[in-house]
């Protein structure tokens, strides 16, 4: 419909005004979920070492399995940038469903990951301690060195040995 199309001149002007600013719109259809807001995040920051362990675990395990972020994202059916956020942002709490999918692809036990990610609680002290130890030993670099590899193996061993009584949040 010609009546609703702008001339090149008008477009140039409008494009300059837009100037590379973000233009994202999100609607009513149930297409999207949003990460938790900062208020909730502040409350949960007290659980930080455990969640740092979760972020690091996902990142290390992915790299140990030689998966790129894109490949894991595609297989687990999560968005690339959510996966980036999971690995880079310990404050971010993914939805339980996302954790399930990642756990499956990374061959890690689901109940333990739900606890580590902040989706469930557990009274299990050993898991918490192992998580804190792992978080302390790990550092974010590109390739896993020997120390990180050992730390990962040890932590995964503890995870797999746990028989957890978990409570959904």
């Amino acid at each position: 419909m010609k009546g609703f199309r702008m001339s090149d001149e008008v477009f140039r002007k409008r494009a300059e005004e837009e100037n590379g600013s973000m233009i994202s719109a999100i609607g009513l259809a149930p297409l999207f979920a949003r990460p938790k807001d900062s208020r909730q995040r502040a409350v949960e920051a007290t659980r930080e070492p455990v969640r740092l362990a979760f972020s690091t675990l996902i990142s290390y395990r992915r790299r140990a399995l030689r998966l790129s972020i894109e490949t894991l994202a595609e297989r687990a059916k999560v968005e690339v940038d959510e996966l980036v956020q999971i690995e880079a942002d310990p404050d971010y709490v993914p939805e339980a469903r996302t954790v399930h999918q990642l756990a499956n692809q990374l061959e890690l036990p689901i109940p333990q990951l739900l606890v580590l990610s902040g989706n469930a609680t557990s009274a299990n002290a050993e898991l918490t301690e192992a998580a804190v130890r792992f978080a302390a030993r790990s550092r974010a670099v590109e390739k896993l060195n020997r120390e990180q590899s050992d730390a990962l193996k040890e932590f995964v061993k503890v995870l797999l040995e746990q028989k957890l009584e978990t409570k959904k949040k």
């Binding site: 973000m22 994202s24 999100i26 259809a29 149930p30 297409l31 999207f32 979920a33 949003r34 990460p35 059916k77 999560v78 968005e79 940038d81 959510e82 956020q85 942002d89």
Partner: peptide
């Protein structure tokens, strides 16, 4: 700060 963020729920989108 990260831009305000959201994630596709790919399973839902396909149906639409």
């Amino acid at each position: 700060p990260w831009p305000e963020h959201w994630h596709w729920d790919w399973s839902k989108k396909a149906d639409l």
